[in-house]
Amino acid sequence: MKTISHDELKKIVKSSPMLSVSASRLLQLTSDPDHDLMDVVNLVKTDANLTARVLKLVNSAAFGLINEITSIDRAISYLGERFIVSIALGDCVGKVFEKKLVGYEAAAGDLWKHDLRTAIAAREVVVQGEMEISPDLAFTAGLLHDIGKALISDYLKDSAPEAIELITSHDSVDYLDAEEKLIGFDHTQAGFELAKAWQLPEKLAEVIRYHHSPAEASEAFRPLVYAVHLGDNIAMMGGFGTGSDSMRYRLDANYTDYITLTPNTLASIMLTVDSEFDKLEQSVASTGEDKG
């Protein structure tokens, strides 16, 4: 299998879709712990397309509102930040999320579903694990965490059996290691390059880079990275991986330094993920029919 050089990876990143101005500003804003919902409202108002999307979503059948919501302020406070971020990302880089991951033998849409499950689970880990970080930020970070898979999937083409062989023969400790052996990069390194090109806030870039090795993240961001690490594992356990790599990663049990989870809390998180996913998937999909 041919490895990707660093220059090639840079080229792949360059040819990827870029974030829209409003999506980029939205990610900056919502990563700042001092922002409030009014800031989000003001930002969305500067983008007519995004405003229209948000209003369309809130009035879609998925929410079953009796009275139409016509004000963007009300729509955003009704939906909450995470829906707005999902729509904004879907609008400009939806293609990346919808990509069929041939290298992982996954179908088109599997990555988006996995990301959405991870996002919901990470948010629930924060809420039910009684963490002191923003649940909405954990959601956004969950959405973005595996973005690197879309970049390297084509290069991993037909390699899934080989990757699995590397793991079962203990030549690789996990799928990440197998990716690196096969093409010279793993999906967290590739995703980190894209995060730089997208000028993502540092904490989101670190989630992308360290979601399988949270202990390596900067101390300040570690709780967030651990929340997404657990969210990712919960998504895979629930049957929503991205194909051949599902469950073939290591759990860092030191999450207990940051997160308190009993088996019952974990079960309750898994239940919430199932029910929230159905709602969110329906509603976000319902705005995405002309997704570019």
Binding site: M237, A253, L266
Partner: peptide
């Protein structure tokens, strides 16, 4: 009933 690698007791839902 699969488990992720290096799982701790809490995450052994597959086993439970």
């Amino acid at each position: 009933g699969a488990n992720v690698m290096d799982t701790n007791d809490t995450f052994q839902i597959g086993k439970r």
